[in-house]
Design a binder for these strands. Structure first.
Lengths: 293, 293
DNA sequence: AAAATAGTGTCTATGAGACACTATAGT
DNA sequence: ACTATAGTGTCTCATAGACACTATTTT
């Protein structure tokens, strides 16, 4: 911490007159060497239909003014990095209390023309319901991400508007975005990031759609269902419907419980699970929302 | 970049009088807000016998003077982050041209008592031959890492000396180390990090020992061999010997070649591979070196 | 010969992909 | 009845673990 006059920064429980470092700290001059600025940039992702979308803000000030950029901001001198990411997300997108995770720090000396800015990049995941609603023409918008899956031809991420036109991003934000998507894809394999992109209750087809949007390629239906129910982290509820067809079971994500995985029957499970009889009805009918299929 | 007088920082090909941002940049004051210091810390890892080891340097200056710490240093105002990590590795360990990778940035405001220091952490992987030789009592030493595998009881990383005594690390370097090991373990699954910890030629048992040291738990021998040869990244050579027993084939790591994986015979491969007849002998006899088993 | 390690062949359990089939809604 | 989607049962294939067995060195 910066030692300002009139502000005590020594941790509680340490008496300056006993501390062997006290004399050193009193003489230390943090301004002896030039220091870079440190910022956070946040890749806020959601899944709309079959596509991964992110939030962009239009730069109003001169360095690359007018271009679209990731929401970001400088880290306060006494502010934790994670706190800065959450603050930026709140200030620029009005989003609070969502899943955020740091994934890489970008620091090429020439990445910002103003000065040396080192940017700690985060990704944040929200379901469409908590994603900020953006007007047709404002200083904040969402855009679809086009990034080929691992099977497709190699190429970097591209951000497109509704008409499919490519949107250029400011600074090195295209590279940041690409790294973010790679990271999220890597975590998708075994972690719970898929559930962060869905509301509290969801159907298995919706969960699969999220996974496919992240991975950028289709998934086998049967294998996906088996893997998900095999994880023992889903709890059934009622049933909802989409546009057409048979209604799908609604699930809720409950973390991996300790007591559940040891008691596994070797044969096929004959118990019907959590009681579909007593609470059969209530076929919630959600508005079509982002359903595309 | 910092715009110093007498140093032209405008990228080539941009004429200031045409640039719309020129006026803004001329008036910009990078010192308007307080800025943190940015450092890099490097977790230099190697495998000695069955254990993962890291390099530590003894702090000579007052903040936690005398304690062991990760090699680290401040990032130059015009220095790339990766370059800083390599420089620190060269200056403090005399190690150059090895595999380094950034994995996390640590920035809690209270992590250094001098001032706000944000540290970009890297891990570096070398084989024992390139690991710096450290004297019995100097300002730089190596130490074994004790960190339970995913099967073992949960617990954080611990650094121990030859006698098994725990060594306390300065600042939050124990947390940095633990995150580093987790990252390397995660990459071990599908990436080539295992080969970075071995010399140019190595045997499959040696490779398995490296994997077991990283993962912190034993691996199935047969499955490991099949998986490694199935990766199609190993090229056989002569044969080396260990202390006792049958000599093991020496392999060399060659990256995943495009032309090799498509032409795969469905049946068992009958071709003896790279000609064991013409170059049968030359049983290289390496000195026992770090072999412990 | 005995000990020790390297390497192969085979059996089995598990998980993924493929496919057929049933179930439940709207039209 | 027809269509469209949700969900289940089964077959096959690929891979990992287990285990037995062979191979090649030192002592």
């Amino acid at each position: 911490m910066i030692r300002k006059p009139g502000r005590e920064t020594v941790p509680p429980g340490i008496r300056l007159d006993e501390d062997p470092d006290a004399e050193f700290l009193r003489r230390y001059d943090p301004t002896a060497f030039p220091r870079p600025s440190v910022a956070v940039d946040v890749v806020l992702l959601t899944v709309r239909g079959r596509e991964l979308h992110l939030l962009l803000v239009r730069r109003s000030k001169p360095p690359e003014a007018g271009k679209w950029a990731l929401p970001g901001g400088f880290v306060g001198i006494d502010e934790d990095l994670d706190a800065a990411a959450n603050r930026v997300l709140d200030e620029k997108a009005g989003v609070r209390g969502v899943f955020v995770e740091q994934f890489h720090t970008f620091g090429k000396p020439e990445r910002d023309r103003r000065m040396r800015i080192i940017s700690v990049a985060y990704f944040a995941l929200v379901d469409l319901g908590r994603f900020p609603v953006v007007g047709a023409e404002g200083n904040v918008r969402s855009a679809a991400i086009r990034m080929p899956g691992k099977d497709g031809p190699c190429g970097s991420a591209e951000v497109v508007d509704e008409a499919g036109r490519s949107l250029p991003l400011a600074f090195d934000h295209a590279a940041i975005l690409e790294t973010a998507v790679r990271q999220v894809r890597a975590r998708l394999r075994d972690a719970s990031v898929g559930f962060e992109l869905l509301p509290e209750t969801f159907t298995l087809p919706e969960l699969q759609q999220v996974h496919e949007a992240i991975a950028g390629e289709p998934t086998n239906k049967d294998s996906f269902r088996r893997r998900m129910v095999g994880l023992d982290v889903l709890e059934p509820t009622g049933a909802t419907r989409q546009f057409v067809g048979r209604p799908a079971m609604l699930y809720r994500y409950v973390g991996p419980s300790e007591s559940r995985r040891s008691t596994r029957l070797p044969g096929k499970l004959t118990s019907p699970g959590p009681e579909r009889g007593p609470d059969p009805g209530r076929p919630i009918r959600k508005p079509p929302a982002g359903r595309i299929r």
